[in-house]
Structures are given as structure tokens and as C-alpha cells.
């Protein structure tokens, strides 16, 4: 079912969590809310779920205004970062919880729970307590529990945030397959841009209580609407007055066209690719990412002077309109750093 968040605002004391946020989640999509911590993404999800009340604005599920409805009445499935498993119940009882609350006949409950245990691969664990499961298994159980009541929408709050990297990667792929099979409209909150790019078909990038950009993964990566989005979705280098992706930087030995002079400060071999760290005339640093073949053809050595060229259409000098990127104000730089920190955390 389609979800509409309309002009949502939420404050916690002095802190503005959300400021006039409007988001449309199309039916059957898997939309990621991507942003650093404190960007308001979890708050937005919890408002959609009814676990928080917005100060103003409206939430519509399938066209019906549910802003005043309690979570129980919204027909949602919610998955928490720390699983929120019912510790005193077995895995089977956990998954059956929603159905038993709804007083479904026993044989219906058993059949549905069996089906879900099969789906999440926990059949052999049915009689165990959640405490005996690994983190990944617990989260699969939590997903099965949320899916048991056939929710209209599935809301996932950093579902893989507490898991090991390899388990996380595995569960991402599994979640995407699950979504393709079940087709439940899903909203996923994450601070991990790789996770959002891999799993979601739409990404809403959030920053300081606002949505900066909504689009499919390619759009937000290739055509970021702001420096923040660019910095948050991947590595960036600043050449002159523009932000560029390190893999879009071309290095040459001759100053042809619009280029910037740089000194090779360090060469890092990363297997199939080579990262060149550059020192620019103004003392700032920038990175360029080359393939091995490109790097070998250039025969670079530390201390060499090279010329860095941004991709076509990206000016080094500020244009009269100041766009794209605009002048590198200190605020913009601070935002870049915040984005980079957030992407690493």
C-alpha cells in the first residue's frame, strides 16, 4: 500500500527532528530513508508507524488519514534495530504473537507460523528462546513476526545495524529477494549508503530534519541535488570549487583544457584500483581513483606534478551563478565533513 507523509514536523524539546517533511512511498516499492544519525530518518519512520505523534502534518496509508490512529490500527509491521524479541517466548510463540492477539483459529496460526519459519529458515529453532539465537537469526525471527499478520506496509528501523558485516551483507540480499517475492511496500531506515543502494529501489536522503533528495539509487548517486547528498552517497574530492567523485577525476601530464595542478602526495594500491592522494596548490588535498592500467600508463611517483581534470561540464572556477556546488563556504565544508563522518560511522 502507498504511504504518504505530508508536511510532517516534530520537535523534541529544543531539537528539531523533522521540519516540513513530505514523502511519498509508492505501492510495492522498497524505499530507503538514508541519512546520518540525528537526520530524523528514524523519527519519520516511527511517525509513520504511530510510535511517535507528529507536531503537525499528516500520515496517509493507502489514502486513509491515519495520523490519529494508534499503531495497533495501522496494519503495519515494524522491525527494530535491536530485534525487540519477546525474550520469555519461544521463536514460534514470537512469530505467532500477532495472530494470537487477533484470535485466529489455532490450526490457521500453526500453518501460518510454519510457513514463516520455513521462509526465514528457522524451522529447527522453533522451540528455542530468542536468547539462544544469533543476531541475524533473531532479526529474521523479528521479520517473520512482523510479516505474520500480513501487514499493509513493512517498516524497518536500521534492521541490520547491530549485525556483523558479513551477516549484514547476506541479510540485505535476502531482504531484497523477500521483497521481490512478497511485494509488501517497505520503508527501510539506514545510515549505510551501500545498504540503501543495494536494497532499495528508491532512496530518500535526509539531513538535519529535511529530505534533501528522493530518487532511485543511480539518480541520487549520479545527480546529487546538493553537496551533502554527494558527500553522503560516496567518496568525494574537491577540485577548485566543485565536488567530484574520485573515480571521475582524470590525471594527465600535460595541462590541457580546464585542469588544476597537483602534486602526488601518496599512491595507495588497492588491488584492482589505485588511489592517488593529491596536494592542491591551495594546500588542500583531493583523491583520484584510477584503474591499475591507467595508473601504470601514467607511471606516477610520489612528488610528481600532475594535472587533475574534473568530468566534463563541472567547472573548477566558480561560475557567475555559483552552481553547481557553489562557493566553498565554511558551512558547506562543515557539512561535507559531517557527511563523511556519518558515512564512516
Amino acid at each position: 500500500m502507498r504511504i504518504d507523509a505530508q508536511a510532517i514536523a516534530k520537535r523534541f524539546g529544543d531539537f528539531t527532528a523533522l521540519e516540513d517533511v513530505t514523502l511519498e512511498v509508492p505501492e510495492g516499492s522498497l524505499t530507503a530513508l538514508l541519512g546520518p544519525s540525528g537526520s530524523g530518518k528514524s523519527t519519520l519512520l516511527r511517525i509513520i508507524a504511530g510510535l511517535e505523534a507528529p507536531d503537525s502534518g499528516a500520515v496517509l496509508i493507502d489514502g486513509t488519514d491515519v495520523t490519529a490512529a494508534r499503531p495497533q490500527e495501522r496494519g503495519i509491521g515494524f522491525v527494530f534495530q535491536h530485534y525487540a524479541a519477546f525474550a520469555h517466548m519461544t521463536v514460534r510463540e514470537n512469530i505467532a504473537f500477532g495472530l494470537r492477539i487477533r484470535k485466529r483459529p489455532k490450526d490457521v496460526v500453526t500453518a501460518r507460523v510454519d510457513e514463516l519459519l520455513e521462509l526465514v529458515g528457522l524451522m529447527t529453532w522453533a522451540g528455542q528462546r530468542p536468547g539462544q539465537l544469533s543476531g541475524g537469526q533473531r532479526q529474521r525471527m523479528a521479520l517473520a513476526r512482523a510479516l505474520a499478520v500480513e501487514p499493509r506496509v513493512l517498516l524497518l528501523d536500521e534492521p541490520f545495524g547491530a549485525l556483523d558485516a558479513n551477516v549484514r551483507a547476506e541479510l540485505r540480499r535476502w531482504l531484497r529477494r523477500l521483497h521481490d517475492e512478497q511485494g509488501v511496500t517497505t520503508v527501510l531506515v539506514t545510515h549505510d549508503q551501500e545498504e540503501a543502494m543495494e536494497v532499495a529501489d528508491r532512496i530518500a536522503v535526509m539531513h538535519e530534519g529535511r529530505i534533501e533528495q528522493v530518487g532511485n539509487p543511480r539518480e541520487v548517486y549520479d545527480h546529487p541535488a546538493s553537496d551533502f547528498v554527494m558527500g553522503f552517497l560516496g567518496p568525494v574530492s574537491r577540485l577548485g570549487h566543485s565536488l567530484v567523485r574520485p573515480h571521475d577525476v582524470t590525471l594527465t601530464h600535460s595541462p590541457e583544457g580546464e585542469v588544476i595542478e597537483a602534486m602526488v602526495a601518496r599512491i595507495v594500491h588497492l588491488g584492482f584500483e589505485v588511489r592517488i592522494e593529491l596536494e592542491l596548490p591551495d594546500g588542500s588535498t583531493a583523491g583520484a581513483q584510477l584503474t591499475r592500467a591507467q595508473a601504470e600508463a601514467l607511471e606516477l611517483a610520489t612528488g610528481d606534478i600532475v594535472y587533475a581534470r574534473p568530468p566534463a561540464g563541472v567547472p573548477i572556477e566558480p561560475s557567475l551563478e555559483g552552481a553547481p556546488g557553489g562557493p566553498p563556504t565554511s558551512a558547506a565544508r562543515a557539512a561535507d565533513l559531517a557527511a563523511i563522518d556519518a558515512a564512516e560511522s
Binding site: L51, P71, F80, A85, I101, V149
Partner: peptide, 19 residues
């Protein structure tokens, strides 16, 4: 210590306050 996530999870699964 137990926090309120389990209670929130119960609410999203349709349980009333008493349940």
C-alpha cells in the same frame, strides 16, 4: 533495563495496552 521496545513491538503487532 528491559526498555520499551518489546512493548512497542507488541503494539505494532496489534496488542492493546492490557494485552
Amino acid at each position: 533495563e528491559i526498555g520499551d521496545e518489546q512493548e512497542q513491538a507488541a503494539a505494532t503487532l496489534g496488542a492493546s495496552g492490557w494485552q
